[in-house]
Structures are given as C-alpha cells and as structure tokens.
C-alpha cells in the first residue's frame, strides 16, 4: 500500500485488505527500495502531493511509481482507489491504451466544480473474465461505496470514450441499489466509476468501497437488521466483497 505525501485513506484500506486475509504494509514515498517484494499494490485515497498541477499527476511521475509500473507490466495486480485511480490514469496504466505516463483519459474535476461526498452504488459493467484482479466477482455485482472526491469525472476525447466502452475498459458504472445504471453524481462520461486495463490486472475505481465495508457503516436497512448484535455489527460486509474478490485474485496468483 503506497503512501504519498497527502494520502489520507491508507489505514482504513489496509484494514479492509487485512480483513479479507491478505498481508499488507504501508510503504512511504521515501522508501521505494521496499516495494519489490510485494505480490500486489494498492494506491489508496487522499490528495497525493496536494493534487498539485492535476490530481494524481505528480505522484504518477514519482520514483516509487517506477516500481509499480514495472510490476503492472509484469502482470502483477495494481488497484487504485479514488486518488489512487487518478494516479493510475495519469500514469497511463488505465485505460492503458496509450504510452506510459501519456494519459489518454482523466478523472477530471467534477461537473459541479467542487468536492462532494455522497453514498453511491457501483456495478460491474464488464464480463468478470475481463477483471482477473477481481477473481470470482459476480456478473453485474453491485457494491456500496462513498464517492468522496473533487475530481472523479471521466473525461476523454470521443474516440477514446468509444474505445473504452467497446474494448471493455469500463469496469464500473454508477447505479442505484437495485443495479440500474444512473447518471454519475460527478458528471462522469459513460457514468464511469472505474476503469480497467486490457490485461485486467490494473483497476482504477473512484468511489471508496472500504468506507462502507463494515455493517456499522451501512446507512440502509441492513444495519438495523442486526441491531443489538455486537459481533455482526462489527463484521465486514457490503463493500468488503470488492476486497474479497481482490484477495482471491492475489492469493491465487501467489500460490501459482
């Protein structure tokens, strides 16, 4: 789990990762030498380098990203959430249709022009076989999450948007709790909430599943259903399915 100056979601993301049986560690931007020994990488949310120049742009050129890019090209799993997703887009790893560090798409400033934090649902919009990084995820799986960002609007030239849709790079779209696609709260093109590369090993998702990954965090009726049951209230559920799929992928790869 990479920590840049300005990252702010590393602890809760690490908790989610550990809850699904993975071993994880925080690696600071000042410690690129520590990166090589990991099986998979997560770029958590926050404001790396204060979103200077553009969200994700400075971090994408940081020395620690050299190792991540190398790992992604070697087929290792790389997951970016929120600011991590912005970094992966700036690094050219998603949709991955152009040269490295020459972005073809961006998570640009929200249509509202400001940061907003709203509870959302996102739906898997590609065939599960397109996202080996989420092994065993159900077709059309609906995941609760928080969209808490100022720059989450997918923007790209029309031909690139067409390619993203046609070639299966559109990994997640915003939807309602029943799975019907809805307009993105940030004005995102294609109602896009997440992008995946051609190989399916690099995934960028804007909303945070780790912020609705325990029963006590649910705002819907599922929390009320276990009121009074301490153990269940503190148990992982909801957004945790996203990390469970990620863990299946990483563990399978590690064994193989």
């Amino acid at each position: 789990m990479l920590v840049f100056p300005g990252t702010n979601s590393e602890d809760e993301t690490l908790r989610a990762v550990r809850a699904v049986g993975l071993e994880g560690e925080l690696v600071h931007w000042s410690q690129p030498e520590k990166l090589a020994r990991f099986d998979a990488y997560i770029l958590p949310g926050g404001f790396a380098y204060e979103d200077r120049i553009r969200a994700g742009a400075v971090a994408a050129h940081d020395a620690v990203m050299d190792s991540v890019i190398e790992a992604a090209q070697a087929g290792k799993y790389v997951l970016g959430i929120c600011n991590g997703a912005q970094i992966l887009a700036e690094a050219g790893l998603v949709p991955g249709t152009g040269p490295l560090r020459r972005p073809t798409a961006a998570f640009a400033p929200n249509a509202s022009g400001r940061f907003q934090s709203v509870h959302v649902h996102v739906k898997l919009a590609v065939d599960p076989s397109r996202v080996p990084i989420l092994a065993g995820i159900e077709p059309g799986a609906v995941i609760p999450a928080w969209a808490s960002h100022g720059d989450g609007r997918l923007a790209a030239p029309d031909d690139e948007l067409a390619r993203i849709e046609r070639d299966g790079h559109l990994a997640f779209v915003y939807c309602d709790r029943d799975g019907t696609t809805v307009a993105a709260p940030n004005g995102s093109a294609l109602s896009c909430a997440g992008l995946v590369n051609a190989e399916g090993n690099v995934l960028a998702i804007m909303p945070h599943p780790e912020r609705d990954a325990w029963t006590f965090q649910h705002l819907d009726a599922t929390r009320d259903a276990v009121r009074g049951n301490t153990e269940e209230m503190l148990a992982p559920s909801g957004g945790i399915v996203f990390f469970e799929a990620f863990a299946r992928a990483v563990l399978a790869e590690a064994i193989a």
Partner: peptide, 29 residues
Amino acid sequence: FRRYDGVVRGCTAIPPGFADAGVLVPVPG
C-alpha cells in the same frame, strides 16, 4: 454536509445529517 468528507478514516457509523449526533467507532475492532 456533502461538501465535507464525513467518512474518511473508515470509522464513521453515523455521518452528519442522518441523526441528531454524528457517531464514530474510533478503535478498530
């Protein structure tokens, strides 16, 4: 409230606007 991040740190049980008081679960587990 939507301009504020009420759920970063992953410890929020009740974000603002859903009850009379916000509630945090600050010690994981």
